[in-house]
């Protein structure tokens, strides 16, 4: 096997913060709790995990923006602590959200400025800016101010910006967060296109089905630790033989969830809310028993709203992180 592009060994990172406004007490947050993994050349390596799991912290360390507290991380064979300059030439990154661009400048001027910061000569800078804006589908609008761009357009400009130095490794932190479905799809196509150019991609996301499409391997991060690392297909084996019973109601399902958790035929119960509606997802090896239990707990429930389906990667993920989603 060839040299790994990213090699992480026993990596820790803590943040020192204070809590309380008046009597400030120091508090230590352990964002990364000893993680180790390798990323192979040319692969799309995904990392998923609940909010606060440490994904962004890890990306920042690998992108040489943050120092680890202990452990080692190498990118392209160089140590992130001491050889950051070597690394920076060959990598680039997108840290989630819309920030990182000058809103008062045009898309082209933004890109052109970063070309200068990367010390490209004039001719190279101009052709590369044009090529990249064409690649991300923004050439038509290149001279408009970024503040007028949609979220999807800003994110595509971020991608163009991240390619300005022809990186060998790209770190993308939740690139599709907050995008509408169409914009998210364009971005995924873009990521596939970039990968086909031989660039290694380290990707984090909240959306499992997206990771399933894109990633060769997927690590599940929880409380700063990697719980599992495998291909999406193998991760799905964790929910082999189970079925998922899913129900959405207006109101609360907390009690039902508690009752179900006590039943032996139930594997994992997860609750999620959106607005006034709550959704319960039950992973079980006995769908019939689960349904009658729900029926007893919620007499008069409209059973047409109940769905029984085979588990997907998201369910495997929910099971791995113990019901949080």
């Amino acid at each position: 096997m060839s040299e790994p592009v990213v090699a992480v060994r026993d990596l820790f990172r803590e943040y020192k913060t204070t809590v309380g406004l008046l009597r400030r007490k120091p508090r230590i947050v352990n964002a990364l709790n000893g993680i180790s993994f390798d990323v192979q050349p040319g692969e799309i390596f995904g990392m998923v995990g609940p909010n606060g799991a440490g994904k962004t912290t890890l990306i920042k360390i690998l992108a040489t923006l943050l120092l680890p507290t202990s452990g080692t991380a190498q990118v392209l064979g160089y140590d992130v602590v001491h050889h950051e300059r070597r690394i920076r030439q060959h990598i680039n990154f997108i840290l989630g959200g819309e920030r990182g661009l000058y809103w008062r400048l045009s898309g082209y001027d933004n890109l052109r400025y970063f070309a200068d910061l990367y010390r490209l000569d004039r001719a190279t800078a101009e052709t590369r800016c044009k090529d990249l804006l064409t690649l991300v589908g923004l050439w038509d609008r290149h001279d408009e101010r970024v503040e007028g761009y949609s979220k999807g357009m800003k994110q595509r400009l971020h991608i163009a910006k991240a390619l300005i130095n022809e990186p060998r490794v790209l770190f993308l932190d939740e690139p599709t967060i907050g995008l509408d479905p169409l914009a998210a799809r364009m971005l995924r196509e873009l990521i596939s296109e970039i990968r086909s150019r031989g660039i290694t991609i380290f990707l984090t996301s909240h959306y499992m089905w997206e990771m399933e499409i894109l990633c060769d391997r997927l690590a599940v991060l929880c409380d700063g630790k990697i719980i599992t690392l495998d291909s999406p297909a193998n991760l799905k084996n964790h929910v082999n033989g189970l079925e998922v019973v899913e129900l959405q109601v207006l109101g609360t399902l907390d009690e039902v969830a508690d009752r179900l958790r006590a039943r032996p035929y139930i594997d994992t119960v997860s609750l999620s809310s959106s607005g006034h509606a709550q959704t319960i997802r039950v992973q079980t090896d006995d769908a019939q028993a689960t349904i009658s239990e729900i029926r007893q707990s919620l007499p008069g429930i409209d059973l047409s709203r109940l769905v029984v389906r085979p588990p997907n990667l998201e369910d495997a993920y929910i099971k791995l992180v113990g019901g949080e989603s």
Binding site: R88, N92, R99, G100, L117, Y118, R119
Partner: peptide, 19 residues
């Protein structure tokens, strides 16, 4: 800082001091 442009600047080969 608000624009979020300091990180990409830090990561570029140009020194923040020069910028």
């Amino acid at each position: 800082r608000w624009f979020g442009t300091l990180n990409p600047m830090l990561a570029s080969p140009t020194s923040l001091l020069l910028v």
